[in-house]
Design a protein around this nucleic acid. Structure first.
Length: 261
DNA sequence: ATGTCCTGGATACCAGGA
C-alpha cells in the first residue's frame, strides 16, 4: 500500500470552473478526487482535459443540476455503483461509487433540502436514510471505504459554522439533518477532519452572498468519512482554502485527507 | 428580505437551484 491523498470538491459547474480544477490538480496532485455539482450532461464532461492532467475519470452527470464524478491519478476508477439504491424514481445524479488505488470510494452530493419544511427537505431526509442503509452494507463488506462529498449538513453550531444565527431555519442546521448525520457516524465511520482537529474551526463553504468569503463566514459541510478498516491509516486532513480565494471560485473549497501506507 | 453565481431557454433578460 502506498500513501494516498483523497479529496472532495463541490466544483459548482465543471465547465465554467475547468481552469480552476486543472490548476488545483496540478498544484496539489491528489490521488483520488470526488467532485459534486458538475451541472453538466454526460456528453459534455471535459474528459480529455482531465485525462491530459493525468487523471482517469468516471462521471454521472445530468443537465443543469447535480452531477458527481470520481477522478484517480494514473488510472481509471472501476465503477461499482451508479445511484443510491432504494428509490427507482429518483432521477437526481447524486451518488457514484468506484474502486481506485485499493479503496472503495463513494462520492455523494446529499440534497440541500431548502426550503424547510417542505418536499425538498423530505427528499433530503429520505435520501439520507437511503445513504445510511447503503453505508451499513459497505461497512459489512469489511472493505476499506471512503464516503466523501457535500453532505449539506453542518454538524454542530460551535466549530462548524461562523455563527448559526442567520442559518437557524436552514436545512443544513436542522436537528433532523444532524441526527441523520450522527446516526451515519454511529455506524462506525470516522469524520476525518474533525477526528484530527477536534478543537479547530474548520469551514469548507462560504456563501457568495454578503461577502462571506471576505469575512471568513464559512460552514463545514464537505466531509470525508473512513470505514474502520481504513481509519488507522489517517494521517493528515485539511482544506485547500487558497482555491476559494481565486477569481471566479466555486463557493466550496477542496477538502482532503492523507492516508499513510 | 437581502445578497451572488451557475445553467438553460429564449433573447438582449429571466427562472430555478443553491
Amino acid at each position: 500500500m502506498t500513501a494516498l491523498t483523497v479529496a472532495t470538491f463541490n466544483i459548482n459547474g465543471i465547465r465554467s470552473r475547468l481552469p480552476a480544477l486543472l490548476a488545483w490538480l496540478e498544484r496539489e496532485r491528489p490521488d483520488i478526487v470526488c467532485l459534486q455539482e458538475l451541472k453538466c450532461p454526460d456528453e459534455a464532461f471535459p474528459q480529455a482535459a482531465i485525462e491530459a492532467a493525468g487523471y482517469g475519470a468516471l462521471w454521472h452527470g445530468q443537465k443543469s443540476w447535480n452531477g458527481v464524478a470520481i477522478l484517480a491519478r494514473g488510472m481509471t476508477p472501476l465503477e461499482s455503483r451508479r445511484g443510491l439504491p432504494g428509490d427507482a424514481d429518483d432521477s437526481h445524479s447524486r451518488y457514484l461509487e468506484a474502486a481506485a488505488h485499493g479503496l472503495i470510494v463513494g462520492c455523494l452530493y446529499l440534497p440541500n433540502g431548502n426550503p424547510q419544511p417542505g418536499p425538498k427537505f423530505d427528499y433530503k431526509l429520505a435520501w439520507f436514510e437511503r445513504l445510511i442503509a447503503h453505508a451499513q452494507g459497505l461497512l459489512d463488506s469489511g472493505h476499506p471505504v471512503v464516503l466523501a462529498g457535500d453532505y449539506n449538513v453542518v454538524p454542530t453550531d460551535e466549530l462548524d459554522i461562523y455563527s448559526p444565527r442567520s442559518w437557524k431555519k436552514d436545512a443544513l442546521l436542522q436537528p433532523e439533518s444532524r441526527a441523520a448525520w450522527q446516526r451515519l457516524l454511529a455506524q462506525g465511520w470516522t469524520d476525518a477532519l474533525r477526528h484530527l482537529h477536534p478543537d479547530a474551526r474548520i469551514y469548507t463553504f462560504w456563501d457568495y452572498f454578503r461577502q462571506r468569503w471576505e469575512r471568513d463566514a464559512g460552514l463545514r459541510i464537505d466531509h470525508l468519512l473512513l470505514s474502520p478498516a481504513l481509519a488507522p491509516r489517517l494521517r493528515e486532513a485539511g482544506v485547500d482554502r487558497w482555491v476559494r480565494g481565486e477569481p471566479k471560485a466555486s463557493d466550496h473549497a477542496p477538502t482532503w485527507m492523507r492516508l499513510g501506507a
